[in-house]
Each structure stands twice: as structure tokens, then as C-alpha cells.
Design a protein around this nucleic acid. Sequence first.
DNA 1: GTCTATAATCGGATAGAC
DNA 2: GTCTATCCGATTATAGAC
Lengths: 197, 197
Amino acid sequence: MARKQGSHSDITGPKVRAAALSLIARHGCAAVSMRQIAAEVGVQVGALYNYTPDKQTLLFDLMRRHMEKLLAAYAETPIAGTPTQQLEAFTRFHIRYHVPRRDEVFVSYMELRNLSVDNFAVVEGLRRNYEDALEGILAAGEADGSFAFEDRKVTVLSLIAQLTGITNWYRDDGRLTQEQVEEIYCDLVRRSVAAVR
Amino acid sequence: MARKQGSHSDITGPKVRAAALSLIARHGCAAVSMRQIAAEVGVQVGALYNYTPDKQTLLFDLMRRHMEKLLAAYAETPIAGTPTQQLEAFTRFHIRYHVPRRDEVFVSYMELRNLSVDNFAVVEGLRRNYEDALEGILAAGEADGSFAFEDRKVTVLSLIAQLTGITNWYRDDGRLTQEQVEEIYCDLVRRSVAAVR
DNA sequence: GTCTATAATCGGATAGAC
DNA sequence: GTCTATCCGATTATAGAC
């Protein structure tokens, strides 16, 4: 029979990850102590070790989960139509997924260097899957003549850097709404790869 | 009378900054101890404090110097001709300056959050000066009809993120030479802002 | 300018009570 | 599952000899 309520473990585990994510995004992994994370959760430091064997694994879990949730969300997003339409759908998905997740994006990029070799390989593999999705769209547009660019792989990295950079400056109370930002970037992206007629 | 040789101070100071830059780029500011920096320089930890009052100021110096040298190099670069030519010159300058300086770029971006409020304001002001240079080029192209985009300020941030992202993947022994990368990005940048004929 | 020694604090991780 | 107490090593920064 399914439990009707989450156990402490079901509740505290996510709280530990949320606290770690927020603190690490603000100060960096090495600058955040397990004691600070525990204080943010509202427990003592010893309790954290019921949820992670060590600090390194906690960091890795944050990054792996971020990439897996990104891929899962992308898999559920309809990407259809012409390559031009697919590229617009990808652009909108990327912005909508990443902009509300600044902390995850920042940590997943910035703390890569603090992962062990094995953990790094896992996260990089997931990232590569996402890049491959965009590369597939660009390849389709190349094949049917709707896109043109000098190097497909570099274009993939360029577009992702361009789009992810939004998280560095976008603010909910800023000059532009997220919808306006989407329009601006759809325009930039489309034009940068569209075949000249 | 001018000194013919650098004093220890003239030599050790730069060595301290070089060691700090390299280590911080690899591991993050909080993860690098003053002892590690001293070991890399070849002195004991106490000696470092002849060159910086504290670790925070050492980090700030790295970032401030990076931005000041970037602006100085840009000021000496000829940016002339039509807006389209100016944009190409900016693109090539940006790539040529940043790609060989991965550590500086990474630290200057990643460790911003570890600066005090005052130090942050200084670095951000310098960064803003650089962005303004690109914005001026875009404004000129808007004015004479050679460029078209939906939002000039967002386009500035987008282009800079796109170009700076090269430092995350470019390798001297990789598939592409720096010259080839320049060509690819000049193409992407030009097309993303060129007015449609 | 550099060294050694030290102060004072804080770090990750664990053991055992409850 | 959480707490308290603790181990033991590392941290920044300083003082004073040379």
C-alpha cells in the first residue's frame, strides 16, 4: 500500500538538495560548509549524512538531477514541423526551462571542475545528449536547405551559449518579460542560421 | 635613476598573481588556500602578504586587471569602416583576446559573486564599458540601416555570451584552428544582425 | 622580503545516545 | 532519523627573527 505521507526521508532529502543548491549557487561549493547547509535545512550537521555519503556526492547529485530533469522535460516537449519550426520550439523550450532555474544552471556549469573524473563523465554525457538534440535539428535544416552555416557542431555550442547566457542577466522585474525575451532570441537564432534566399 | 633589474617585489608580485589565477581557475577561489598559492610561487605563506593585504583583494586584483587590460587592448585596436566592418573587427578582437586567456575569463566571470559589494561594482563598471563599445557599433548599424534586431541591449549581451562561450570548448589541438573559429563566428554574428535586404 | 611559529577558528566526517 | 560531542587536520592572518 502506498504511503499517504512522505516520511522524514522523503521530505528532508529534497530540502537538503534545495538548501545545498541555493547556497552553492551563491557562494560556490568549497565556500559552503556542511554546517551551513544543515542550518538552512534546520537540522544538525550529522543528519545530513543520512542523505549523502559526502559533500562531493551531494554536489554530483545536484548536477546529475538537473541534467536528467532537463532531458526528461525536453523529451516531453513537442518538437515538430519544419526545421525552422523545430528550431523555434527548441529555443523557446530552452529559455523556458533554464530561465526559472538560474541556480541549477549556474551550479551545473560552474562546479564541473569540482567533480571527480567519473562524475564529470556522467554529467558531460548527459549534456552531450542535449546538444545532440539541437544538432539533429540543425542537420535536418541543412539537409532540406532551410539552414546554412559554416560548421554545425560549433553552431550548436554557439547557440546554446547564447541562449543559456540569458540566465546571467534576466530578472523577473526587469525591463522585459520572459515572452519578450523569447521573441528577441527566436529572431536572433532564426536569422543566424537561416539560409539566404 | 631607473632600476635596471626588477626587484624581488617586481618579480614575485606577478608570480603571485599568475599562480593565484591558475589555481583559482582550476579549483575555485574558496577551494584554493594561500599555502597552495605560496607553494606554486615557491615561497612560504607569510611572504604572500607582502603582495596583498588579504585573499579577497588578491582575487579582486586579478579581475580588475583582466578587465583593464581588455579595455586597453580594445582601445588600441582599429575599429573602423562601415558598421558591418566594425562588427567584424569587434568579433575578431573579442575572440583573439579571450581565447588565449581562458583562466582570466573563467575567473572573472565565475568569482564575481565572491567579491565585496564595492569591488563588484568596480568590475561590473569595467565590463559595462566593454559592452557599451559593442552597443555603439550596433547603434551605428541600426542608424544607417545595415543592422536590424528587436532589442539592441539584449543583442549586445547575446553576442558577448555567444563569443565568450568559445573559451569553454576551444582547444589549440582541436579540430579547428582559431582562424577557422573566427570565420565561423563572424558569419554567425553578421547574419544574426544584418538587415534583411 | 622572506622565513618560522603561532593564534584562533573552522572544515568534513564519525560515533554513539536517544 | 536526528542529536551531541568529538577527532583531527586545514584555514587565514599575524608577529617577530633574520
